[in-house]
Design a binder for these strands. Structure first.
Length: 302
DNA sequence: AAATTCATCAACCGCGATACA
DNA sequence: CTGTATCGCGGTTGATGAATT
């Protein structure tokens, strides 16, 4: 079925030829796209506007980044996906020069498999229930990455709080709601979403206005598979908790004669630079700003 | 060497949201 | 308010080349 915009035209489909690319680039470089539905006619292309738009956005745009996704980009995709789910366009906004299509393809062809191989559900990022079952019933079968010597190869070795506490993924309320997603506008009369300095970052909440601070002190937030008062998530306390958890895992591993390389990948994290999220996730402030806006926009829609 | 399977990713499709007449 | 056009998004398909049998 052809699109509304090109119902009456004869329309070419399939891969674009270099000649077609050249026509589209020349036209848009000179005139801009304006209305995509009129681009094919004006550019002399037998394509529908939708196809032109897609080709430009995903392939011809001059600001696109070429080459494979880097490890850093991969990590960003995974971390943001954990929060936003399959919102590819939103995720791509955090990766300059990458398109939603590229992110989606990379997710489906690469990241998904890696997560599954690590026993994680790619949708929820929680432990797969059958994987959890295996963990409990097979002594030396596959172990999560922090148990293994060969494993920590990928970027997905964030020590997941569910792994540590052994909470079954079926017990989890997935997806986790990350703390900074709670949209709090310190000024209720403000038409704008909260900015990072107003945002309930654990690091800075002491500097929030009284209203926000009161909220933070009374509200609960999901952490380690359950709800805890937010006060317990202050960095010093959380760091101490992490240390205890590391020691616990280390001694458990030692007791079954395993080399102990358990560690939080975030243990050398600089608390001064970023904000703390549940599940051992850390973001820099600009990501949080973006997430705050995204979250706020989503809330507004509902 | 040929056939088959697998992986990748560009492109398409349909749908919901938005703009506009 | 209603209908139509367009845009943008996420899910899916299918062509292509690589890997395996």
């Amino acid at each position: 079925m052809s699109h509304q915009c090109c119902r009456k035209q004869k329309v070419k489909r399939g891969l674009w030829s270099p000649e077609e690319d050249e026509k589209l680039i020349r036209f848009i470089t000179i005139h801009g796209h304006g209305s995509w539905s009129s681009v094919p006619n004006l550019a002399g292309l037998e394509r529908c506007g939708k196809s032109c738009r897609l080709r430009w956005i995903n392939y011809l745009r001059p600001d696109l980044k070429r080459g494979s996704i880097t490890e850093k980009e991969e990590r960003i995709i995974v971390d943001i996906h954990r929060i936003l789910g399959n919102r590819w366009a939103q995720i791509a906004k955090h990766l300059p020069g990458r398109t939603d299509n590229e992110v989606k393809n990379f997710w489906n062809s690469c990241i998904k498999k890696k997560l599954i191989a690590q026993g994680l559900d790619p949708n929820t990022h929680n432990l797969l229930s059958d994987y959890n079952y295996k963990l409990n019933h097979e002594n030396n079968a596959c172990k999560p990455s922090y148990h293994s010597h060969q494993q920590p190869t990928s970027t997905f070795t964030v020590v997941n709080s569910q792994m540590i506490s052994g909470i079954s993924s079926t017990d989890m309320k997935a997806p986790l709601i990350p703390f900074p997603m709670i949209p709090l506008a310190p000024d209720n009369n403000s038409p704008y979403p909260p900015l990072s300095h107003e945002f309930p970052s654990i690091l800075t909440y002491e500097y929030q206005n009284p209203k926000t601070k009161a909220f933070l002190e009374n509200e609960s937030c999901m952490w380690a598979g359950g709800y805890e008062p937010i006060q317990s998530m202050i960095p010093e306390k959380r760091q101490a908790e992490q240390q205890l958890e590391i020691e616990k895992i280390t001694s458990e591993l030692a007791s079954v004669g395993q080399n102990t390389d358990a560690s939080f990948e975030t243990s050398n994290f600089d608390f001064a630079e970023s904000s703390l999220l549940p599940c051992g996730m850390y973001y820099n402030q600009s990501s949080i700003d973006q997430l705050a806006w995204d979250s706020w926009a989503l809330q507004e829609k509902k």
